[in-house]
Each structure stands twice: as C-alpha cells, then as structure tokens.
Design a protein around this nucleic acid. Structure first.
Lengths: 211, 211
DNA sequence: TCAGAAACATACCATACGGTCGGTATGAGT
DNA sequence: ACTCATACCGACCGTATGGTATGTTTCTGA
C-alpha cells in the first residue's frame, strides 16, 4: 500500500475508507440496499478504486465483516472490565460495558455482522461465514471468565460456559432488533438488564453482593 | 374481492398469494434483495396485478408485516399451552412451544418482521412501524399470564411483566440471528433453554417442580 | 341487462445497479 | 534512470429494477 502524497494526502487509504463507509452505511441501510456508488461517494473514492480493492460487492461484505472483527476485538480487549480481579465481576462488567455503550443513533451502536448475517445468510455464504466467525469468535472471548467464575464458585447447573457466552450475544442481537423495531435504544439496554439478572441468579449473587 | 372462475380458479387470490410469497422470500433473501418480479413469479401473478394491489414495494412490505401479524396471532392463539391452568405453566409452555417449532429450514421458522425491521428501520418508517406493532403486540399477549403468575406466587423482583414479555421476544430474535450466522437452528433453541431457565429462576421453581 | 368497479394482463420506460476497461499517477527496488 | 507493481481514475456497458399506461376480463348491484 502506498503512502500519502503532497498532492493527495489521502492516497493509500481508499480501502480502509471504503470499509469504514461500509461499516456505517450498511448498519443504517442494510447490505443489499447499500450500493457500490453509495460507498464510493461516502469514502470519496471512484468506482475504479472500489473494484481495484474488492473483487465484487460480496467481497467487500466479507472484508467489512473481517474489518469489524478486528476493530471490535481491539475495542473490547482494551475495555476496563478486564482489570477486575474476580472473573464473575469481569463477566458482569462486560455486560455493564455493553449496556453503557448503547446510546444515541441506532446505526452507531448496533452490530454490523448481526445485521448482515440476518440479511444475507442464505444468499452469500462467504459473508455469512465471516459474520459467524465474528459473533462466535467474540463469544469465545467470554468463555474463560465464565468458566473461571463457575469453577471458583462451584456452580453446577446444566449449562456450559460456551452456551452462556453465546447467549450473551443472542441477547445483544435480540436487543438490537427490538431497539430498531421500536426505534428506542432503551429496549436494547433493557435486554441487558435481564441478562445481568440472569447471570447473577446463575451464580447465586445479588446486586448488593457483587458489582 | 372477486371469487374464483371456471377458467381461472385462482382469481381473487393474487393479493394473498403475493403476501405469502413475500413472507417466504423476504425471510430467505431479505426485503431489499427481494424484487417485485421475484414476488410476481413466485405468486404466479403479473406486475400489473402487483401494482393493482399495492401502491409500491414499500406498501407491500407494510401489508406483509400486517399479514404476518394476523397469521401469527391466530397461530399462537390456537396453541395448546393456553389450556394449562397455571399461568406460570402457560408462560413456560409458550417458551417450550416456541422452541418446539424451531426446526428445519431457517427461512421457515425465523421471524419476518424481525428480519424486515433489522433491515429497513432507517429507510422505511411505515415498514418499521408495522414490524414494531407486530413484535410488541405479540409481546403484549404474554403480559397477562406473566403478571398473573407473579401475583399468584408473590414474586417481587425489580422487573415488570411488560419488560419480561419483551425480553422473550429479544431472546427469540437474537436466537434467530445466531442461528442464521451459525447456520444451525440449534443455536436458537439453545437461547430458549436459557430463557426458560431464567424464568424458572425468577419464579423460584425448578424443572422438577413445574413442567 | 347493463353500467361501473374491481381484478387482473401486457408492453413498455427511465433509471439505477454491479461490474468492466483502458488509462494515469505514484512509489519501491535496482 | 528505468522498470514494475500497486493505487487510483472515470467513462462506459448490459441488465435488472421499480413503476406506469393501457388494455381485457370478471364480478356486483341496480
């Protein structure tokens, strides 16, 4: 990839600007309704540049999902709840953190890969798989803390850390759908309140006994 | 609406056939990717008929959401869990029923209005509102049983029947998203297992004490 | 029986869409 | 200085798309 020039300081960023535009526009309009021209206009690049970087619109979709995975991984890896000493507190800290970042414009906090998976699961295998890797990969990052909390506290229910980790993602995705349908971010936050209550019950703790 | 004729026994059904096609195709491909021609081909009607019944593709979307509301309302109203005497058993029966009907093809059991809302929430207010009415209207049908169970059992948590009713829908929608992303209906069923466990915990019952 | 409306059908249109192609500009290596 | 690869440009293409205009058939109600 080439560096910026005196004349065009943006040169070399076209691919990333396209991915950023996709992240924003697809979350607002959906993948199918987002046109290549939309993306080019938003990213301020030409169609030639688009198809230089991406073989097809579908390939852009896959790349956007992977770009999303990268960015969100880094974002959550740097989040403060990891600093908590108690694994259960980290799990509940994750849920609280997810709730805290739900505010403002729907397209700004909802999930790109959830939106895309819902839309193209049957028509584009590549995109669906990339979305699946993103969601389930993220879920996996929660498993260790859940399992540690479980062992540490001697919890023996008929559920697994993997299953609960996935469930957190189901509730997030479902909360986003309801927030969109009701045009109200509070609906997504409400879902996370129930999730936190569920987790506390699974671990026999209350809001008073644990943050 | 006109009746069938000897020559064309299907006459008079075009509107409904279009709505049924929309229900099936939109769930598989999404709203934007579903073309008017797709619908006409599937419903075996001409474009003229389509635009005779629907002012625009958007209007079809609204009508499809309302059609979905009608059909699902009747479907769930006739479901067997209503016959149970205990309100909490009816609530858990609902969850079990929702789980039982999740099988086979993803497009066959996932939710039309959830899919559409996720996709068009920002671009088509009419469709979004129709989807919202469908989801939250369905949630409302659960409130009475939840509230009755709560009173009957003297449960006093910091949650409302309305909120829990909505949460069931969030988990369903989220389960569908995960099932699509992972291409596995079991992921949606797993989410409902967690929901049933959550509800039992809220009401201090176990699988042994209540069906 | 006949007028009017509703339920379709057919041909057509303007445009938007994903994608292509030949070209230029820039930077890295030698 | 020259070559090569990569980044990017912008005009162009074929087709798919939502929508329309103008018919024809069928039912209803007076």
């Amino acid at each position: 990839m080439s560096r910026p020039t005196k004349q065009s300081p943006e040169r070399g960023n076209a691919r990333i600007r396209l991915l950023e535009s996709a992240r924003d526009i697809v979350r607002a309009k959906g993948f199918a309704a987002t046109t290549v021209d939309d993306l080019c206009r938003s990213a301020d690049v030409t169609k030639g540049a688009f198809f230089h970087h991406f073989e097809s619109k579908d390939a852009l979709g896959v790349a956007a999902a992977e770009f999303w995975t990268e960015k969100t991984s880094a974002f959550f890896a740097a989040a403060p709840y990891h600093d908590l000493a108690d694994p259960l507190e980290r799990v509940l800290g994750y849920v609280a953190f997810r709730k805290a970042i739900i505010e403002g414009d729907l397209a700004a906090f909802t999930c790109l890969v959830g939106t895309m998976a819902q839309e193209v699961y049957a028509s584009s295998q590549g995109i669906r798989e990339a979305c699946g890797r993103s969601i389930f990969g993220h879920a996996e990052t929660l498993e260790a803390d859940i399992e540690a909390a479980r062992r540490e506290r001697g919890i023996t229910g008929d559920w697994t850390a993997q299953s609960l980790a996935r469930h957190t993602q189901a509730i997030l995705q479902g909360g986003f759908v309801l927030a969109k349908a009701g045009n109200d971010p509070a609906l997504a936050r409400e879902a996370l309140d129930h999730l936190a209550r569920y987790i506390r019950q699974l671990f026999h703790v209350t809001e008073e006994t644990i943050a």
